[in-house]
Computed example of a mutant assay.
Amino acid sequence: MVELIIEQRRRSLGGGMEVGRVLPFPKRRMVGPYIFFDHIGPVDVPAGVDRRIDVRPHPHIGLSTVTYLFSGEIMHRDSLGYEQAIRPKEVNWMTAGRGITHSERFEHARVHGDHLHGIQAWVALPVEFEETAPSFSHHACADLPQWSDGGVHGQVIAGSAYGLTSGVVTHSPQFYVHLDMERGATTEIPGGYRERAVYIASGAVELRGVTYGAGKMLVLDERPAWIWALERSSVMLLGGDPVGERFLYWNFVSSSRERLEQAAADWKAGRMKLPDADDAEFIPLPAERPEPAPAMS
């Protein structure tokens, strides 16, 4: 039933910002096409916070990023010219394809203070779409189907689950769902996908008589599975069909080691366009370049 339990590992992003890194994990690099999963916060950000908390412009290739917030606000700017704030239960879906750059800044928090809590995930693109043209889309509630049943309040972020399909354009079979579960509520995990996982963002759930608390990802086999909320809980469900082996270095994902090397060289040489509205600074290529590690389900 539960093949693997992955505990989040705390990572500092600088400026007092921490995330809980879940994927990739040495024993499980991917779940379906999901190759990266960071739990942002929860953290109280005071008004006037130092700009070091911001994520300066940086590049991506070969993936789609999806940012989803439970609370707070982040401002996105990218090299295609998009400038879009993301707020709770909305989606910023950015497909890097052959290359894009973007920044994520906490401008609302600097003025008003904020309680920041959310998830950023990366979805590896199938080989035939790795070099597709970059794109960005923002989706509010009308594009993200919602339902409530028996104390479970759900939203389909991407793909198809529970008989509903998100308006977000994806490139491979997958599902990504947010469940807000009242105490005592129960639900079945969507089936029909080769790989699935449950992440408990807050609260605690029970699966097959075992209790799991916040900060844990449960990687499941293909058999039917139900979860029961032992208290008010926020749960993310994700998975899909595998897309094959991927190599991951810094912000780059590819089925080719050579393509990662080219992306790194392009960024270092300044050949990747910065966002027009945010081009005064950027994150340099890391000085030490570890051997790109393969990532596969």
Rank of each mutant, 00 (worst) to 15 (best):
Val2Trp: 09
Glu3Val: 01
Ile5Phe: 04
Gln8Gly: 12
Arg9Cys: 02
Gly15Arg: 00
Glu18Ile: 00
Glu18Met: 05
Arg21His: 00
Pro24Tyr: 10
Phe25Val: 00
Lys27Thr: 07
Arg28Gly: 04
Arg28Cys: 14
Val31Glu: 01
Pro33Ile: 05
Phe37Ser: 09
Pro42Tyr: 12
Val45Ala: 04
Ala47Pro: 01
Val49Leu: 10
Ile53Tyr: 07
Arg56Met: 12
Pro57Val: 01
Gly62Trp: 09
Thr65Val: 13
Tyr68Lys: 02
Leu69Asp: 13
Leu69Gly: 14
Phe70Ile: 13
Ser79Lys: 00
Leu80Thr: 02
Leu80Pro: 02
Tyr82Cys: 04
Ile86Cys: 08
Val91Asp: 09
Asn92Val: 11
Trp93Cys: 06
Ile100Ser: 10
Thr101Cys: 15
His102Phe: 12
Ser103Met: 05
Glu104Arg: 02
Glu107Pro: 05
Val111Glu: 15
Val111Phe: 09
His112Ala: 06
His115Met: 11
Ile119Glu: 15
Gln120Asp: 15
Phe129Pro: 01
Glu131Phe: 10
His138Cys: 05
His138Gln: 08
His139Ile: 00
His139Glu: 12
Asp143Trp: 13
Leu144Val: 11
Gly150Lys: 08
Val152Asn: 07
Gly159Ser: 03
Ser160Glu: 14
Val169Trp: 05
His171Ala: 07
Gln174Ile: 02
Val177Glu: 02
Leu179Thr: 06
Asp180Lys: 07
Asp180Ile: 05
Asp180Arg: 08
Arg183Met: 03
Gly184Pro: 05
Thr186Trp: 02
Thr186Val: 05
Glu188Val: 04
Glu188Cys: 09
Val198Ile: 14
Ile200Tyr: 03
Val205Arg: 12
Arg208Cys: 01
Arg208Asp: 04
Gly213Leu: 03
Gly215Val: 06
Gly215Glu: 06
Leu218Pro: 04
Arg223Phe: 01
Ala225Gly: 04
Ile227Tyr: 01
Leu230Tyr: 00
Glu231Thr: 06
Ser233Cys: 08
Ser234Gln: 14
Asp241Arg: 00
Pro242Cys: 06
Gly244Ile: 08
Glu245Asp: 15
Arg246Ala: 11
Phe252Gly: 01
Ser255Gly: 15
Ser255Gln: 15
Arg257Pro: 01
Leu260Arg: 10
Gln262Arg: 09
Ala263Tyr: 12
Ala264Asn: 12
Ala265Thr: 11
Asp266Thr: 00
Trp267Leu: 04
Trp267Ser: 00
Lys268Leu: 13
Arg271Lys: 13
Asp278Ile: 04
Ala280Cys: 00
Phe282Ala: 12
Glu291Val: 10
